[in-house]
Nucleic acid binder design. Sequence first.
DNA 1: AAAATTTATAACTTTAATTGATTGATTTTA
DNA 2: TAAAATCAATCAATTAAAGTTATAAATTTT
Lengths: 312, 312
Amino acid sequence: MTLIQLEYIIALDSFRHFGKAAIHCNIAQPSLSLQVQKLEEELKTTIFVRNCTPIIPTETGAIIIEQAKKIIAEAGMVQQLVHQQKNTVEGHLKIGIIPTLAPYLLPLFLMNFIKKYPAVKLHISELTTEKIIKRLNNGSIDVGILATPLAHAELKEDVLFNEEFVGYISKDEKIFSKKYILPADIDPNRLWLAEEGHCLRTQTLNLCELQKNSTIEKHLEYETGSIETLKNFVEKNGGITLLPELATMNMTAGKKAMLRYFKSPAPAREISMVTIKSFVKTRLTNVLKDSIITHLPLEVSKKKTMVRLDIV
Amino acid sequence: MTLIQLEYIIALDSFRHFGKAAIHCNIAQPSLSLQVQKLEEELKTTIFVRNCTPIIPTETGAIIIEQAKKIIAEAGMVQQLVHQQKNTVEGHLKIGIIPTLAPYLLPLFLMNFIKKYPAVKLHISELTTEKIIKRLNNGSIDVGILATPLAHAELKEDVLFNEEFVGYISKDEKIFSKKYILPADIDPNRLWLAEEGHCLRTQTLNLCELQKNSTIEKHLEYETGSIETLKNFVEKNGGITLLPELATMNMTAGKKAMLRYFKSPAPAREISMVTIKSFVKTRLTNVLKDSIITHLPLEVSKKKTMVRLDIV
DNA sequence: AAAATTTATAACTTTAATTGATTGATTTTA
DNA sequence: TAAAATCAATCAATTAAAGTTATAAATTTT
């Protein structure tokens, strides 16, 4: 039994496909087949049932895979212990972050982070919530930064901050004249929404359904995943949209005049750093977390009374 | 990093000597050197300080070795899980047992055990308590069967039974006429003792010192590790010796007439099955334990009031 | 200072892992 | 239902790695 074989069966379990798992492991498909066979031979048990699509682990196989994950995690811990001992922060960290957060959160801390920890190589991907969860599970990213809670038992959530939603109101709207708005003030028919499957859409809808279960019937359906697009729509075409607080930070004074904050408790989304529970690069993620939190604007980091809008 | 490299550094830490560790690992010394170097290179840290004799692990090295032991234990668990799943009992088990127990305990269960579990390969060595502890720690035996408690934090003790001591009294002795004896009845000057370092000697001396701190001055000093020799001395030359109960089971009626049991609570030694705490072949050791306990003579297995004589 | 011990290095051998090409089996598509 | 596509296993060849013997370098012991 080798650590590599254990990595291979974990990948195979995660992809349920020899070819795809092989690509993930950076090897050719026959190598994977052979190593899995060798391990099965050594343990005198079949780990995967091949005569079905997709392949599935046997009962014993599933137990072996669980144990393999434990072993690989403990093995990863070795390098961590060395860094801890040296008091160094280095290594690779693959981060997945949702697109409604990335353009506003990353610039706040990223340059500072890579300057402070030059030995850390970051690899950041903008991904949807769904893809982040999938990739955390198959190990192609280490950390997710996204709205929580996710209610996934295998994931560990570390709350970074709560981000308020702010109304972005065209001058033509009735509620433009109000100083502070209430969820009830928002007319779903005047609301620009993010596209289907977008967590911002879910959160916004949650807010509306919080007040009344009105059927939303829009005259114009426009699907976008971009907050900038939503902003532009309100500016050019009127209407209302909800912006996460960080997206309002760098607006010009003129545009900020169109913002309307909610009366306390304001609706908010909880933003967390998520890892799989067996994740071992704790030192890296800890400094990342610290870096993010210390570079948050005061408006966000100071605790306020909020109502969390869940995404599920 | 490979599991083999981890095994090598564990062996090297245990022997503190490249040559000896290499023999233990069944490889040549340069192979071990090379693999340790490779691991140190990969982790970018030195694990062992070589410019001293014997070599010692660095501070970081010691931490890595601890983690390595955890990983190797978890890896050993995989095969165990497979057996558990198949509900089979198989594998190798290396047992160390003290010489004062081996000839009397092993015949009681061994044939039955190998018949019941034909897939288990046993390798049994008669070893002193000291050597058993050493070999448990360096992994050259899996289980020790010996008198406890040992007061070693890294070892797990599983009590099998308590074995009474019985006086073996020559007809010439005054106390031969007594039906039941007391520790105070034993004249240290008439006592045949096992050799220095022998746990039976320590236990016997403990018993004597329990009553009075008399200085033992013998006319004849004879060093033996064998209970049979002690018996023969009493038979041929008179005097007294203390026998562990199991050593009295197969005696002829004539010789049994020389046995004198202690008044309750009788002095006894605690016999346990000892493993290192990280040991994983729990299924094997469990069936071994069961096998031993179920084949004990009734006189031994039935609980009596005893006073434990410790060996330390 | 010489001998012995111990680890590292070098050159070579053996073993193991990986690959590209191909086969056989199964599923999908037309 | 036949053809195409997909997927894992097998084969032959290559590459990489782990191990070996012999020996050198360094250290300790005598």
